[in-house]
């Protein structure tokens, strides 16, 4: 394989095989290093900075971040070819934020398509649209977070306002090449009231072509990593939402949007 795109360099921090909740079928997720946002609930805080850093957990220190190439990543991804073929799965880029390294991400998606894998990204959509446009030609599923319709609150909890995100959501929807799926990380104390979910669902319903909305209940997966990075976790007081509460929010989302809504990815 001497395809040019294989040489494109990038920085990742993990590759996770057998992912079955981030796009159709059995997938491999490549986690891209670096993010524009600083969401307080982020379960992968080690993904946020572009710099290679050290994470200490359970007494063991490991280096987070690896400089690699599209070719090297694809060698790993293609090991599960039999599973993609049988399940209709493929490659998902997550992060961090894949738009943070748009050229690398675009090359990965192209490489996946060249190998007959379908492609997905999980993204905040917080970037200039030119970066998104680099990915769209080879993108099948865009799993986009819409966290809040109130820009001030959005900024307070993620570090950035939401106008650009909402604008990009509309542009991606109107472009129509990638199937857009709206995801809402449901965080107690941030966006878990019926009114907040209703507003997000209403917005999602206005996007042309959008059919699905996922409510992702808050979990504490990343909590221990913060101290491992020498950082503070500011959401220590909150607990994952109850099953009943999630069900109530799901009903609200369905009524407000008329979309195919579900809890979890």
């Amino acid at each position: 394989m001497t395809k040019e795109y294989n040489q494109v360099p990038g920085r990742i921090f993990d590759i996770q095989r057998y992912s079955i909740h981030d796009g159709p079928g059995i997938r491999t997720i490549v986690f891209i290093k670096g993010c524009f946002l600083r969401c307080r609930w982020c379960c992968n805080p080690e993904s946020q900075r572009y710099d290679i850093e050290e994470l200490t957990m359970n007494g063991k220190t490991r280096v987070v971040g690896e400089d690699t190439t599209v070719g090297a990543v694809m060698t790993e991804v293609l090991k599960d070819m039999p599973y993609y073929r049988r399940s209709g799965g493929g490659l998902t880029l997550s992060g961090g934020e894949c738009l943070f390294q748009a050229d690398f991400s675009a090359a990965l998606l192209l490489a996946a398509h060249e190998n007959q894998l379908n492609t997905a990204i999980e993204s905040t959509a917080f970037s200039k649209f030119e970066r998104i446009e680099k990915l769209l030609p080879e993108l099948d599923y865009f799993l986009m977070d819409i966290k809040h319709t109130n820009s001030a609150k959005h900024k307070a909890f993620t570090g950035v306002p939401n106008e650009l995100i909402l604008e990009n959501a509309r542009k991606v929807a109107e472009d129509g090449r990638a199937q857009l799926i709206i995801r809402v990380p449901t965080i107690p104390g941030f966006n878990d009231t019926p009114a907040e979910i209703r507003d997000i669902a209403r917005f999602a319903a206005t996007l042309p072509g959008v059919k699905k909305l996922h409510l992702l209940p808050y979990h504490r997966l990343g909590q221990d990593k913060y101290s491992g990075l020498g950082r503070d976790y500011t959401l220590t007081e909150i607990l994952p939402p109850s099953k009943e509460h999630m069900q109530e929010l799901l009903d609200v989302a369905v009524r407000a949007s008329g979309l195919d809504c579900q809890i979890g990815g």
Partner: peptide
Amino acid sequence: LVVRVAGYSALFTTLSRSLQDD
């Protein structure tokens, strides 16, 4: 051992104690 953690599946033993309890 693979378990599903909210949004995705993970190796159970790599999770924190509190999350394992969840």
